[in-house]
Nucleic acid binder design. Structure first.
Length: 414
RNA sequence: CGGGGUGUGGCGCAGUUGGCUAGCGCGCGUCGUUUGGGACGAUGAGGCCGGAGGUUCGAGUCCUCUCACCCCGACCA
Protein backbone atom coordinates (compact mmCIF):
# COMPACT_ATOMS: atom_id res chain seq x y z
CA UNK A 1 0.00 0.00 0.00
CA UNK A 2 1.31 3.38 -0.98
CA UNK A 3 1.03 5.86 1.81
CA UNK A 4 -0.02 8.59 -0.60
CA UNK A 5 -3.12 6.48 -1.25
CA UNK A 6 -3.74 5.38 2.32
CA UNK A 7 -6.84 6.89 3.89
CA UNK A 8 -6.15 8.53 7.21
CA UNK A 9 -3.46 10.99 8.27
CA UNK A 10 -1.32 11.01 11.34
CA UNK A 11 -1.90 13.86 13.75
CA UNK A 12 0.24 15.66 16.23
CA UNK A 13 -2.62 16.71 18.43
CA UNK A 14 -5.59 14.75 19.43
CA UNK A 15 -8.76 15.90 21.16
CA UNK A 16 -8.25 16.55 24.83
CA UNK A 17 -11.27 14.39 25.48
CA UNK A 18 -9.30 11.33 24.46
CA UNK A 19 -7.67 10.46 27.75
CA UNK A 20 -6.70 6.84 27.44
CA UNK A 21 -3.34 5.94 25.93
CA UNK A 22 -4.82 3.41 23.54
CA UNK A 23 -7.37 5.80 22.06
CA UNK A 24 -4.88 8.65 21.94
CA UNK A 25 -2.21 6.71 20.07
CA UNK A 26 -4.65 4.89 17.83
CA UNK A 27 -6.33 8.18 16.92
CA UNK A 28 -3.06 10.04 16.34
CA UNK A 29 -1.84 7.24 14.12
CA UNK A 30 -5.20 7.13 12.37
CA UNK A 31 -6.29 3.61 13.23
CA UNK A 32 -9.59 4.67 14.74
CA UNK A 33 -11.94 7.65 14.79
CA UNK A 34 -14.39 8.25 17.57
CA UNK A 35 -18.05 8.40 16.58
CA UNK A 36 -19.67 9.10 19.95
CA UNK A 37 -18.55 8.47 23.52
CA UNK A 38 -17.30 4.92 23.75
CA UNK A 39 -18.04 4.12 20.12
CA UNK A 40 -15.26 4.00 17.56
CA UNK A 41 -14.89 3.59 13.83
CA UNK A 42 -12.02 1.50 12.54
CA UNK A 43 -10.18 3.17 9.69
CA UNK A 44 -8.24 1.10 7.13
CA UNK A 45 -5.12 0.74 9.29
CA UNK A 46 -7.15 -0.16 12.36
CA UNK A 47 -9.30 -2.56 10.44
CA UNK A 48 -6.23 -4.43 9.21
CA UNK A 49 -5.15 -5.03 12.79
CA UNK A 50 -8.71 -5.93 13.74
CA UNK A 51 -8.87 -8.53 10.99
CA UNK A 52 -5.59 -10.09 12.08
CA UNK A 53 -6.85 -10.43 15.63
CA UNK A 54 -10.11 -11.85 14.32
CA UNK A 55 -8.32 -14.42 12.20
CA UNK A 56 -6.15 -15.68 15.06
CA UNK A 57 -9.20 -16.10 17.28
CA UNK A 58 -11.11 -17.81 14.48
CA UNK A 59 -8.29 -20.26 13.81
CA UNK A 60 -8.01 -21.26 17.45
CA UNK A 61 -11.77 -21.65 17.80
CA UNK A 62 -11.87 -23.83 14.71
CA UNK A 63 -9.05 -25.94 16.12
CA UNK A 64 -11.16 -26.89 19.12
CA UNK A 65 -14.04 -27.81 16.80
CA UNK A 66 -15.93 -24.57 17.17
CA UNK A 67 -18.40 -23.97 14.34
CA UNK A 68 -18.74 -20.37 13.30
CA UNK A 69 -22.16 -18.85 12.84
CA UNK A 70 -23.73 -15.42 13.07
CA UNK A 71 -26.56 -14.32 15.30
CA UNK A 72 -28.62 -11.15 15.27
CA UNK A 73 -27.95 -8.02 17.25
CA UNK A 74 -31.68 -7.30 17.58
CA UNK A 75 -33.33 -9.51 20.13
CA UNK A 76 -36.90 -9.72 21.31
CA UNK A 77 -37.85 -9.41 24.95
CA UNK A 78 -39.53 -12.82 24.91
CA UNK A 79 -36.32 -14.70 24.42
CA UNK A 80 -35.02 -13.08 27.61
CA UNK A 81 -38.18 -13.61 29.63
CA UNK A 82 -37.58 -17.29 30.26
CA UNK A 83 -34.43 -16.54 32.22
CA UNK A 84 -35.85 -13.33 33.72
CA UNK A 85 -32.76 -11.44 32.66
CA UNK A 86 -34.59 -8.76 30.67
CA UNK A 87 -35.38 -6.60 33.68
CA UNK A 88 -32.06 -7.33 35.30
CA UNK A 89 -30.25 -6.06 32.26
CA UNK A 90 -32.19 -2.84 31.76
CA UNK A 91 -29.30 -0.86 33.20
CA UNK A 92 -26.86 -2.13 30.63
CA UNK A 93 -28.98 -3.21 27.66
CA UNK A 94 -30.34 -0.85 25.05
CA UNK A 95 -34.04 -1.62 25.23
CA UNK A 96 -36.79 0.03 23.22
CA UNK A 97 -40.06 -0.53 21.40
CA UNK A 98 -40.19 -0.88 17.65
CA UNK A 99 -42.93 0.48 15.38
CA UNK A 100 -45.21 -2.45 16.25
CA UNK A 101 -44.83 -1.79 19.92
CA UNK A 102 -42.72 -4.89 20.43
CA UNK A 103 -40.01 -4.68 23.00
CA UNK A 104 -36.60 -5.08 21.43
CA UNK A 105 -33.13 -5.17 22.86
CA UNK A 106 -29.72 -4.76 21.34
CA UNK A 107 -27.56 -7.77 22.09
CA UNK A 108 -25.40 -7.57 25.17
CA UNK A 109 -24.73 -11.28 24.98
CA UNK A 110 -26.31 -14.33 23.35
CA UNK A 111 -26.90 -17.09 25.88
CA UNK A 112 -30.67 -16.92 25.49
CA UNK A 113 -30.84 -16.70 21.69
CA UNK A 114 -28.31 -19.48 21.16
CA UNK A 115 -30.10 -21.70 23.67
CA UNK A 116 -33.32 -21.11 21.76
CA UNK A 117 -31.71 -22.00 18.47
CA UNK A 118 -29.98 -25.09 19.80
CA UNK A 119 -33.30 -26.25 21.25
CA UNK A 120 -34.63 -26.63 17.71
CA UNK A 121 -31.78 -28.86 16.60
CA UNK A 122 -30.70 -30.94 19.60
CA UNK A 123 -32.82 -33.83 20.81
CA UNK A 124 -30.56 -36.73 21.60
CA UNK A 125 -27.24 -37.32 23.33
CA UNK A 126 -26.09 -38.19 19.81
CA UNK A 127 -26.36 -34.53 18.89
CA UNK A 128 -23.94 -33.51 21.64
CA UNK A 129 -21.49 -32.08 22.41
CA UNK A 130 -21.63 -29.06 20.15
CA UNK A 131 -19.57 -25.89 20.08
CA UNK A 132 -20.90 -22.79 18.37
CA UNK A 133 -19.30 -19.41 18.11
CA UNK A 134 -19.66 -16.09 16.38
CA UNK A 135 -17.77 -12.86 16.00
CA UNK A 136 -20.42 -10.22 16.27
CA UNK A 137 -21.39 -6.82 17.62
CA UNK A 138 -22.42 -6.37 21.22
CA UNK A 139 -23.97 -3.31 22.81
CA UNK A 140 -23.61 -2.23 26.42
CA UNK A 141 -25.20 0.94 27.61
CA UNK A 142 -22.33 1.71 29.97
CA UNK A 143 -23.19 4.53 32.30
CA UNK A 144 -19.75 5.87 31.92
CA UNK A 145 -17.31 4.97 29.19
CA UNK A 146 -13.60 5.17 29.59
CA UNK A 147 -10.39 3.50 28.51
CA UNK A 148 -10.89 4.12 24.80
CA UNK A 149 -11.57 0.95 22.82
CA UNK A 150 -10.99 -1.22 25.90
CA UNK A 151 -14.45 -0.43 27.16
CA UNK A 152 -16.94 0.68 24.58
CA UNK A 153 -20.69 0.84 24.24
CA UNK A 154 -20.56 -0.99 20.92
CA UNK A 155 -17.88 -3.57 20.29
CA UNK A 156 -17.10 -6.75 18.45
CA UNK A 157 -16.89 -9.89 20.48
CA UNK A 158 -16.13 -13.52 19.82
CA UNK A 159 -18.50 -15.60 21.90
CA UNK A 160 -18.50 -19.36 21.93
CA UNK A 161 -21.17 -21.52 23.55
CA UNK A 162 -20.68 -25.16 24.35
CA UNK A 163 -23.40 -27.77 24.94
CA UNK A 164 -22.77 -31.03 26.76
CA UNK A 165 -24.48 -34.11 28.09
CA UNK A 166 -22.75 -33.92 31.47
CA UNK A 167 -20.83 -31.70 33.84
CA UNK A 168 -17.72 -33.83 33.36
CA UNK A 169 -17.88 -33.36 29.61
CA UNK A 170 -18.22 -29.62 30.15
CA UNK A 171 -15.25 -29.65 32.51
CA UNK A 172 -13.18 -31.42 29.89
CA UNK A 173 -14.04 -28.89 27.22
CA UNK A 174 -13.67 -26.01 29.65
CA UNK A 175 -10.04 -27.05 30.07
CA UNK A 176 -9.58 -27.22 26.31
CA UNK A 177 -11.13 -23.79 25.87
CA UNK A 178 -8.96 -22.47 28.69
CA UNK A 179 -5.85 -23.64 26.86
CA UNK A 180 -7.11 -22.27 23.55
CA UNK A 181 -7.57 -18.89 25.20
CA UNK A 182 -4.04 -18.85 26.54
CA UNK A 183 -2.86 -19.78 23.08
CA UNK A 184 -4.82 -16.97 21.46
CA UNK A 185 -3.31 -14.37 23.77
CA UNK A 186 0.13 -15.79 23.29
CA UNK A 187 -0.26 -15.63 19.53
CA UNK A 188 -1.49 -12.05 19.80
CA UNK A 189 1.66 -11.24 21.72
CA UNK A 190 -0.13 -10.58 25.00
CA UNK A 191 1.12 -11.96 28.29
CA UNK A 192 -2.15 -13.13 29.73
CA UNK A 193 -2.75 -15.32 32.75
CA UNK A 194 -5.98 -16.76 34.02
CA UNK A 195 -7.55 -15.78 37.31
CA UNK A 196 -10.53 -17.02 39.24
CA UNK A 197 -13.43 -14.62 39.20
CA UNK A 198 -17.06 -14.37 40.07
CA UNK A 199 -19.55 -15.97 37.75
CA UNK A 200 -21.52 -12.74 37.87
CA UNK A 201 -24.95 -12.84 36.37
CA UNK A 202 -23.93 -15.78 34.25
CA UNK A 203 -23.10 -18.55 36.64
CA UNK A 204 -22.84 -19.42 40.30
CA UNK A 205 -19.48 -21.08 39.90
CA UNK A 206 -16.14 -19.37 39.62
CA UNK A 207 -15.39 -18.25 36.13
CA UNK A 208 -11.96 -17.61 34.72
CA UNK A 209 -10.81 -14.27 33.48
CA UNK A 210 -7.76 -13.82 31.29
CA UNK A 211 -5.86 -10.86 32.54
CA UNK A 212 -3.11 -8.73 31.09
CA UNK A 213 -1.11 -6.53 33.41
CA UNK A 214 -1.20 -2.85 32.49
CA UNK A 215 -1.69 0.43 34.30
CA UNK A 216 -4.72 1.06 32.11
CA UNK A 217 -6.44 -1.95 33.65
CA UNK A 218 -9.79 -1.52 35.32
CA UNK A 219 -9.54 -4.68 37.39
CA UNK A 220 -7.33 -5.45 40.31
CA UNK A 221 -5.90 -8.95 40.52
CA UNK A 222 -4.41 -10.54 43.62
CA UNK A 223 -1.72 -12.92 42.46
CA UNK A 224 1.02 -15.17 43.67
CA UNK A 225 4.24 -14.97 41.70
CA UNK A 226 5.39 -18.30 43.07
CA UNK A 227 2.60 -20.69 42.21
CA UNK A 228 0.53 -18.71 39.68
CA UNK A 229 -2.54 -18.62 41.94
CA UNK A 230 -4.58 -15.55 41.07
CA UNK A 231 -8.00 -14.15 41.93
CA UNK A 232 -9.91 -11.06 40.96
CA UNK A 233 -9.79 -8.68 43.93
CA UNK A 234 -13.60 -8.52 43.74
CA UNK A 235 -13.87 -12.03 45.12
CA UNK A 236 -10.49 -12.60 46.76
CA UNK A 237 -10.70 -13.07 50.50
CA UNK A 238 -7.11 -11.93 50.94
CA UNK A 239 -5.22 -8.72 50.23
CA UNK A 240 -1.74 -8.02 48.95
CA UNK A 241 0.90 -9.00 51.48
CA UNK A 242 -1.23 -11.88 52.78
CA UNK A 243 -0.22 -15.49 52.39
CA UNK A 244 -1.07 -17.34 49.19
CA UNK A 245 -3.79 -19.91 50.01
CA UNK A 246 -2.06 -22.40 47.76
CA UNK A 247 1.65 -22.17 48.53
CA UNK A 248 1.97 -19.74 51.44
CA UNK A 249 4.13 -17.16 49.66
CA UNK A 250 3.22 -13.49 49.90
CA UNK A 251 0.75 -12.34 47.26
CA UNK A 252 0.90 -9.06 45.34
CA UNK A 253 -1.71 -7.08 43.45
CA UNK A 254 -1.70 -5.66 39.95
CA UNK A 255 -3.95 -3.59 37.73
CA UNK A 256 -5.16 -5.74 34.88
CA UNK A 257 -7.34 -5.67 31.81
CA UNK A 258 -9.79 -8.51 31.44
CA UNK A 259 -9.08 -9.67 27.92
CA UNK A 260 -11.28 -12.74 28.03
CA UNK A 261 -13.70 -14.58 30.25
CA UNK A 262 -14.95 -18.14 30.32
CA UNK A 263 -17.92 -19.49 32.28
CA UNK A 264 -19.32 -22.85 33.27
CA UNK A 265 -23.02 -22.20 32.99
CA UNK A 266 -24.20 -25.66 34.00
CA UNK A 267 -27.94 -26.00 33.47
CA UNK A 268 -28.84 -22.40 34.38
CA UNK A 269 -30.08 -21.56 30.89
CA UNK A 270 -31.07 -25.00 29.72
CA UNK A 271 -33.37 -25.67 32.67
CA UNK A 272 -35.11 -22.30 32.56
CA UNK A 273 -35.44 -22.40 28.80
CA UNK A 274 -36.22 -26.09 28.48
CA UNK A 275 -33.17 -27.21 26.54
CA UNK A 276 -33.10 -30.95 27.15
CA UNK A 277 -31.83 -34.03 25.41
CA UNK A 278 -32.77 -37.71 25.59
CA UNK A 279 -29.95 -39.73 27.07
CA UNK A 280 -28.98 -43.32 26.32
CA UNK A 281 -31.25 -44.48 29.16
CA UNK A 282 -34.22 -42.82 27.48
CA UNK A 283 -34.50 -40.10 30.10
CA UNK A 284 -34.77 -36.35 29.44
CA UNK A 285 -31.92 -34.39 30.92
CA UNK A 286 -30.81 -30.75 30.96
CA UNK A 287 -28.09 -29.83 28.54
CA UNK A 288 -24.99 -28.56 30.33
CA UNK A 289 -23.56 -25.36 28.95
CA UNK A 290 -20.51 -23.15 28.94
CA UNK A 291 -19.78 -19.75 27.41
CA UNK A 292 -16.52 -18.16 26.39
CA UNK A 293 -15.88 -14.57 25.32
CA UNK A 294 -13.13 -12.36 23.97
CA UNK A 295 -13.52 -8.71 22.95
CA UNK A 296 -11.68 -7.91 19.72
CA UNK A 297 -11.39 -4.16 20.16
CA UNK A 298 -10.42 -4.69 23.73
CA UNK A 299 -7.65 -7.04 22.63
CA UNK A 300 -6.40 -4.38 20.24
CA UNK A 301 -6.53 -1.66 22.87
CA UNK A 302 -4.79 -3.90 25.36
CA UNK A 303 -1.95 -4.57 22.93
CA UNK A 304 -1.45 -0.83 22.56
CA UNK A 305 -1.53 -0.29 26.31
CA UNK A 306 0.93 -3.10 26.88
CA UNK A 307 3.19 -2.28 23.96
CA UNK A 308 4.04 1.35 23.24
CA UNK A 309 6.67 3.94 24.02
CA UNK A 310 6.92 7.73 23.93
CA UNK A 311 7.11 7.67 20.13
CA UNK A 312 4.04 5.58 19.48
CA UNK A 313 2.63 2.10 19.12
CA UNK A 314 4.77 -1.04 18.92
CA UNK A 315 2.67 -3.74 17.27
CA UNK A 316 3.32 -7.37 17.96
CA UNK A 317 4.41 -9.49 15.03
CA UNK A 318 1.03 -11.09 14.51
CA UNK A 319 -0.95 -7.87 14.79
CA UNK A 320 1.23 -5.39 12.91
CA UNK A 321 -0.95 -3.84 10.19
CA UNK A 322 1.85 -4.32 7.66
CA UNK A 323 5.01 -6.41 7.88
CA UNK A 324 7.29 -3.69 6.60
CA UNK A 325 7.16 0.08 6.55
CA UNK A 326 9.24 0.98 3.52
CA UNK A 327 10.62 4.49 3.85
CA UNK A 328 11.79 6.19 0.74
CA UNK A 329 14.71 8.49 1.35
CA UNK A 330 15.77 8.77 -2.25
CA UNK A 331 15.35 11.95 -4.23
CA UNK A 332 16.56 11.51 -7.77
CA UNK A 333 14.65 9.61 -10.37
CA UNK A 334 17.03 6.67 -10.67
CA UNK A 335 16.96 5.97 -6.98
CA UNK A 336 13.19 6.34 -6.96
CA UNK A 337 13.02 3.53 -9.46
CA UNK A 338 15.09 1.41 -7.11
CA UNK A 339 12.65 1.93 -4.25
CA UNK A 340 9.76 1.07 -6.53
CA UNK A 341 11.50 -2.17 -7.45
CA UNK A 342 12.10 -3.07 -3.81
CA UNK A 343 8.44 -2.34 -3.07
CA UNK A 344 7.34 -4.65 -5.87
CA UNK A 345 9.81 -7.36 -4.93
CA UNK A 346 8.71 -7.37 -1.30
CA UNK A 347 5.08 -7.62 -2.36
CA UNK A 348 5.95 -10.50 -4.66
CA UNK A 349 7.79 -12.19 -1.80
CA UNK A 350 4.45 -12.22 0.05
CA UNK A 351 4.98 -9.38 2.49
CA UNK A 352 2.47 -6.72 3.34
CA UNK A 353 4.26 -3.45 2.77
CA UNK A 354 3.29 0.09 3.63
CA UNK A 355 5.38 2.23 1.31
CA UNK A 356 5.91 5.82 2.39
CA UNK A 357 6.16 7.44 -1.02
CA UNK A 358 5.10 10.85 0.23
CA UNK A 359 7.10 13.90 -0.82
CA UNK A 360 7.81 15.17 2.67
CA UNK A 361 10.82 15.58 4.92
CA UNK A 362 12.47 12.43 6.07
CA UNK A 363 12.14 13.40 9.70
CA UNK A 364 8.39 13.33 9.42
CA UNK A 365 8.49 9.92 7.80
CA UNK A 366 10.50 8.56 10.70
CA UNK A 367 8.17 10.15 13.25
CA UNK A 368 5.11 8.75 11.52
CA UNK A 369 6.65 5.31 11.20
CA UNK A 370 7.33 5.20 14.92
CA UNK A 371 3.82 6.39 15.70
CA UNK A 372 2.16 3.82 13.43
CA UNK A 373 4.35 1.13 14.93
CA UNK A 374 4.87 -1.42 12.16
CA UNK A 375 7.48 -3.95 13.36
CA UNK A 376 10.10 -3.08 10.74
CA UNK A 377 11.10 0.14 9.06
CA UNK A 378 13.07 -0.45 5.89
CA UNK A 379 14.96 2.60 4.75
CA UNK A 380 16.20 3.02 1.22
CA UNK A 381 18.97 5.56 1.19
CA UNK A 382 20.05 7.73 -1.66
CA UNK A 383 23.78 7.46 -1.23
CA UNK A 384 24.28 4.04 0.31
CA UNK A 385 23.77 0.86 -1.64
CA UNK A 386 22.87 -1.15 1.46
CA UNK A 387 19.41 -1.07 2.90
CA UNK A 388 18.80 -0.16 6.50
CA UNK A 389 16.43 -2.26 8.56
CA UNK A 390 15.18 -0.70 11.79
CA UNK A 391 13.37 -2.75 14.40
CA UNK A 392 10.59 -0.57 15.78
CA UNK A 393 10.60 -1.98 19.31
CA UNK A 394 14.17 -0.96 20.16
CA UNK A 395 15.26 1.04 17.11
CA UNK A 396 18.11 -1.38 16.47
CA UNK A 397 19.55 -0.97 12.99
CA UNK A 398 20.94 -3.52 10.58
CA UNK A 399 22.57 -2.66 7.25
CA UNK A 400 22.64 -5.15 4.44
CA UNK A 401 21.80 -5.94 0.84
CA UNK A 402 18.29 -6.89 -0.21
CA UNK A 403 18.76 -10.63 0.22
CA UNK A 404 20.29 -10.32 3.69
CA UNK A 405 17.56 -7.99 4.86
CA UNK A 406 14.87 -10.22 3.38
CA UNK A 407 16.30 -13.15 5.30
CA UNK A 408 16.07 -11.42 8.67
CA UNK A 409 12.54 -10.24 7.99
CA UNK A 410 11.51 -13.76 7.01
CA UNK A 411 13.18 -15.14 10.12
CA UNK A 412 11.24 -12.72 12.34
CA UNK A 413 7.81 -13.43 10.89
CA UNK A 414 8.10 -17.18 10.40
C1' C B 1 -26.99 7.68 38.37
C1' G B 2 -24.46 11.53 42.14
C1' G B 3 -20.54 15.31 42.14
C1' G B 4 -17.11 18.45 39.19
C1' G B 5 -15.77 20.53 34.44
C1' U B 6 -15.58 21.76 29.04
C1' G B 7 -17.91 23.17 24.16
C1' U B 8 -14.71 29.13 19.63
C1' G B 9 -12.07 27.03 11.43
C1' G B 10 -10.06 19.93 10.38
C1' C B 11 -6.93 19.60 15.36
C1' G B 12 -4.83 22.19 19.86
C1' C B 13 -5.88 26.79 22.23
C1' A B 14 -6.55 32.57 23.50
C1' G B 15 -10.42 35.99 23.69
C1' U B 16 -10.39 40.04 31.77
C1' U B 17 -15.65 43.36 34.32
C1' G B 18 -20.59 42.87 27.44
C1' G B 19 -17.95 47.23 22.79
C1' C B 20 -14.93 47.95 16.84
C1' U B 21 -13.85 43.70 11.13
C1' A B 22 -13.32 36.94 16.45
C1' G B 23 -7.21 35.98 17.09
C1' C B 24 -2.77 32.42 17.54
C1' G B 25 -0.20 27.65 16.61
C1' C B 26 -0.62 23.08 13.82
C1' G B 27 -2.78 21.30 9.48
C1' C B 28 -4.59 22.57 4.26
C1' G B 29 -3.90 25.17 -1.23
C1' U B 30 -0.24 27.67 -4.59
C1' C B 31 5.05 29.15 -5.75
C1' G B 32 10.13 28.68 -4.60
C1' U B 33 14.13 26.81 -1.64
C1' U B 34 14.46 22.21 1.20
C1' U B 35 14.47 16.78 3.02
C1' G B 36 18.58 11.29 8.62
C1' G B 37 14.21 12.65 13.63
C1' G B 38 7.59 16.36 12.77
C1' A B 39 11.99 22.24 7.29
C1' C B 40 11.78 27.68 5.70
C1' G B 41 9.96 32.05 3.12
C1' A B 42 6.05 34.27 0.38
C1' U B 43 0.99 34.04 -0.50
C1' G B 44 -4.09 32.15 -0.05
C1' A B 45 -8.58 29.55 1.64
C1' G B 46 -11.29 28.27 5.90
C1' G B 47 -15.08 29.88 12.05
C1' C B 48 -20.38 34.08 12.57
C1' C B 49 -18.27 31.11 18.66
C1' G B 50 -22.58 23.31 20.44
C1' G B 51 -28.21 24.39 19.87
C1' A B 52 -32.80 27.21 21.20
C1' G B 53 -34.84 31.26 23.64
C1' G B 54 -34.08 35.78 26.50
C1' U B 55 -31.77 40.59 28.56
C1' U B 56 -29.38 44.82 25.89
C1' C B 57 -28.39 50.29 21.53
C1' G B 58 -24.83 46.15 21.25
C1' A B 59 -23.73 39.05 23.28
C1' G B 60 -18.21 34.45 22.02
C1' U B 61 -18.75 37.22 26.77
C1' C B 62 -24.80 37.94 30.99
C1' C B 63 -29.58 34.77 32.13
C1' U B 64 -32.82 30.29 31.20
C1' C B 65 -33.45 25.73 28.90
C1' U B 66 -31.24 21.95 26.03
C1' C B 67 -27.57 18.77 23.64
C1' A B 68 -22.73 16.74 23.44
C1' C B 69 -18.17 15.48 25.57
C1' C B 70 -14.48 14.79 29.67
C1' C B 71 -12.99 13.75 34.91
C1' C B 72 -14.03 11.49 40.08
C1' G B 73 -17.34 8.01 42.31
C1' A B 74 -21.09 4.17 42.08
C1' C B 75 -22.05 0.34 38.42
C1' C B 76 -19.96 -3.26 34.92
C1' A B 77 -22.40 -10.43 31.11
Amino acid sequence: MRQTKLFGKTRKDVSRDEKSTNAELLTKASFIEREIAGVYNYLPLGFKVYQKIEQIIREEMNKIDGQEMLMTALQSKEVWDATKRWDGLEEIMYQFRDNHGSEIGLATTHEEPITNIVKKHVESYKDLPIYLYQIQTKFRNERRVKSGIIRGREFEMKDLYSFHTSQSDLDKFYQIAHEAYLKIFKRLGLEAFSVEASGGDMSKEYSHEFMVKTEAGEDVTILCDKCAWAQNAEIAKIKKGDKCPKCGAKVTEAKTVEAGNIFRLGNKYSSSMGLQFTDQDGKKKDVIMGSYGIGLGRAMGTIVEASHDKDGIIWTKTTTPYHIHLLNFAKNVKKQARVEKIYNDLNKAGFEVLYDDRDISFGKKLKDADLIGICFQLIVNETKEDLELVFRADHKKVMGDYQTILKSIKEFYK
